[in-house]
Amino acid sequence: MTAACYSARRGVTFFLLAPVLLIVAVGYVLPSIALVAMSFELPFQWPESFATFTARNYQKLALDPYYLKILAYTFALGLVVATITAVAAFPVAIYLARTRGRIASLYAVLTFTPLAVGMNMLTLGWMVILGRTGFINSLLTGVGLISDPLQLLYGWGSIVIGMAHVTFTFMVLPLEAVIRQIDPALEKAARMLGAGPVRTFLSVTLPLSMQGVAAGFLIVFLQVCGAFVLPLLLGGQSSSTIPISIWEQITVSSDRPFASVLSVVLMAASIVVMMIQLRVMRGKDLV
């Protein structure tokens, strides 16, 4: 290949990539730079703005136990929901990957309904189910198991249930794709060599599907950490998260620099989690 030909080919590649690069730059890089600038109270007006530089908002975050608790709660919520969905999604993913027929198709459709319905509608649905006059309380009081309705809404429990439901599909999809690539003969061989179903799963299926688990875990974790509407509506006074705190800092305190600090921390944590996952996955095919 001549140098001119090679150069033209690179030009075409850049030309094809340009729309994506432009979208990423305008929609993500520029706002991110503005966000970081605002977190240091820089007005984003080059170059005279450095006089206002301060790190006091980061100091406030580091020294305030309330916000440290919120950070810990948010990331813990992400881990708990991702773990629950991973455990719940495995049987479904195995079934979908290994089964054909009408029932499997129906099951697949049911699994994907959360994507079609959307997070807000699912949140409202859980409010109806878990409410004081909702389905579960009506059932329990109806059969005489309880006399007063249980407080099922407005706590960490209701947030975990809601988020696990909303993000379930995002765990099933990568898992199912990975499990589909596993040769069933490997599992059969393990069984023929005397391993039971549990040992076969733990020794063969699970290790070979870890890339799917990691991908699903990452997607679910990031979705949960960034969720706003569902924790706001299903949570209570002691179950605030970073996105809710960001919203409060903007709408109530009008403290955009501190809201930016919270956003930067959330963004940085997401990037760190992604980098860890990429490092774990390095050199391996995703499916």
């Binding site: 033209a8 030009g11 850049f14 432009l22 305008v26 520029l30």
Partner: peptide, 16 residues
């Protein structure tokens, strides 16, 4: 000929 420089130039102009 379309080169990387042309594309990046256009890209920069768009950003600006």
């Amino acid at each position: 000929m379309l080169t990387r420089r042309h594309v990046l130039g256009g890209f920069g102009a768009g950003l600006a």
